Simulated scan of single mutants.
Amino acid sequence: MSLDPNTTYVPTEDWRAYSGVLSRRVFAFIIDYMIVLLLCIPAAVIIFFLGVLTLGLGFVLFPAMFFIVAILYFGMTLGSSAQATPGMRAAGIAMARTNGQRIDFVLSTVHIALFWIINSILTPFILLAGLFTERSRLLHDFLLGTVIVRTT
């Protein structure tokens, strides 16, 4: 598969499209969360000035800042035409729906929220599911009807 930002990735039965996907997902996870942490710096500055302008009311956003930044980051990047975050693009993978439809903002935010919820309950077993399932799918992929495919 070629890396084309205007392509809707459709799952295939070809095993090569899923070869090494799990390790690429881990690599993409590390890159994406470094980017989210870097994006938290300007978000903290914005929240600080918002807190000053609202006489302290805006400071209540500080505890939720990481989650707000992460949900916006994953929602806007996975829901884009590339169907992948910058970390996923660097790892050569993209997300696809099993029915062939495009990934949208809502599905991508639900996907990351389910990842956090399931990961907080089943850590580190969430990655073990990918070793034993077809197409290296994780539990939240099954629940949402998504699959990760190689683009390179």
Rank of each mutant, 00 (worst) to 15 (best):
V21L: 06
V21N: 10
V21P: 06
L22M: 14
L22H: 13
L22R: 15
L22N: 11
S23K: 15
S23F: 15
S23A: 07
S23T: 11
S23H: 13
S23G: 14
R24V: 06
R24N: 14
R24Q: 12
R25I: 02
R25K: 08
R25Q: 13
V26E: 04
V26D: 03
V26W: 05
V26R: 01
V26H: 01
V26Y: 02
F27P: 00
F27E: 03
F27M: 10
F27G: 03
A28L: 02
A28S: 06
I30L: 14
I30D: 00
I31N: 01
I31Q: 00
I31Y: 02
I31G: 03
D32P: 06
D32N: 02
D32T: 02
Y33H: 13
Y33A: 02
Y33E: 10
M34W: 11
M34G: 07
M34S: 11
M34K: 03
I35T: 05
I35H: 05
I35L: 11
I35E: 08
I35A: 07
V36C: 10
V36W: 13
L37P: 06
L38I: 10
L38M: 12
L38P: 13
L38E: 06
L39E: 08
L39Y: 15
L39K: 13
I41W: 14
I41L: 13
I41Q: 10
I41D: 05
P42V: 09
P42F: 09
P42W: 12
A43L: 11
A43R: 04
A43I: 08
A44R: 15
A44Q: 12
A44V: 09
A44S: 15
V45D: 03
V45Q: 03
V45Y: 13
V45M: 07
V45G: 08
I46K: 08
I46W: 12
I46A: 14
I47W: 10
I47T: 11
I47M: 11
I47R: 09
F48H: 14
F48Q: 10
F49M: 02
F49H: 04
F49K: 01
L50N: 06
L50G: 12
L50F: 04
L50P: 04
G51F: 04
G51E: 05
G51M: 03
G51L: 02
V52G: 06
V52E: 08
V52P: 00
V52D: 05
L53R: 14
L53C: 03
